[in-house]
């Protein structure tokens, strides 16, 4: 490759990030510092470029942190943050508990069934996400499939729809592939002779699993957990469709602020805070990776 081309290849990701992350982020950040007004567009101030530098200065002077102060003062927002993080964390733990055995089981299979099982993990993607979540409504509603099955077994019906449990169920269902695939990727790359070496040196198969397989799969655990936790914390569709009015998640708050209240600055501020809350732990993880992750 010619040097110029190599340089271009190196610059391309940054251009991409600039266009699709940095610029939108700055726009949203600017929006979050504005005030909500009854107008079109529904926020102020606007930059008046006809006044040149004075216009820009006046615009910058009008920006303030008022919206953020509101976020801190109104406990509704704090509650929504905490409940989002709690639901995402619960979902992530359950996903790990379910996803790890699935991924491990798939790596232990003969190549034929292994492909079939991997396919089965990916297959739900071929159906619309919305339709799959609607299907859960049909399963969980009071006269739904679940209660019909419980009734047939002579058990009491349960009311899951519009509860937090339904949201967690939906999250776990929807994000399972994002947990299984990174775990499968690390587990399948693991050198089989390491397990044999552990057993050869006196570790029972169970001990070999806990002392070798699990520590070496931690990068996959971290990847899967981040891949699930981050979007789950901002998830909108699942809590909206499966959760009740008492399940407050940030995705829903942003939606309400933006569409129902037409308060674009508040919606932007919530989004920015969410982004920062999620970015900080990732950056910490990047900067000081535990030794096993290297």
């Amino acid at each position: 490759m010619k040097p110029e081309r190599a340089a271009l290849a190196a610059v391309a990701p940054y251009l991409w990030l600039l266009a699709f992350f940095a610029v939108p982020f700055l726009l949203v950040a600017k929006l979050s510092l504005s005030d909500s007004v009854l107008a079109m567009p529904p926020y102020a101030p606007q930059i008046d470029l006809s006044r040149g530098a004075d216009g820009v200065r006046a615009f910058l002077a009008a920006l303030d942190l008022e919206t953020y102060l509101r976020l801190v003062r109104d406990h509704l927002y704090l509650d929504a943050y905490l409940s989002s993080l709690r639901l995402a964390a619960t979902g992530t733990v359950i996903l790990l508990l379910i996803g790890y055995p699935i991924a491990y089981g798939i790596t232990r299979c003969a190549p034929g069934p292994r492909q079939a099982l991997l396919m089965a993990v990916i297959l739900p993607f071929w159906t619309s996400f919305l339709i799959r979540i609607y299907a859960w409504i049909a399963i969980l509603k009071p006269q739904g499939l679940l209660n019909a099955a419980l009734g047939a077994l002579g058990l009491e019906p349960v009311n899951l729809l519009n509860t937090e449990a339904a949201v967690i169920l939906g999250l776990v269902y929807a994000y399972l592939p994002f947990m299984v695939l990174p775990l499968y990727a690390v587990l399948t790359r693991q050198d089989e002779s390491l397990i044999e070496a552990a057993q050869d040196l006196g570790a029972s198969p169970t001990r070999a699993f806990w002392t070798v397989t699990v520590p070496l799969s931690l990068p996959g655990v971290a990847a899967g957990a981040l891949l699930c936790f981050i979007p789950m914390a901002g998830e909108f569709v699942i809590p909206d469709l499966l959760g009740g009015s008492e399940t407050l998640m940030l995705g829903k708050v942003i939606w309400i602020e933006f569409f129902a209240n037409r308060d674009w600055p508040a919606a932007s501020a919530v989004a920015i805070v969410l982004l920062v809350t999620l970015l900080v732990p990732i950056m910490l993880l990047e900067r000081a990776p535990p030794k096993v992750l290297r």
Partner: peptide, 20 residues
């Protein structure tokens, strides 16, 4: 006897050192 109960240890061709 399963491998972990045998008084026989092996040096693997790949060495199979535990990287962690």
């Amino acid at each position: 006897l399963p491998p972990h109960r045998r008084p026989v240890h092996m040096m693997f061709q790949s060495y199979a050192l535990f990287p962690h």
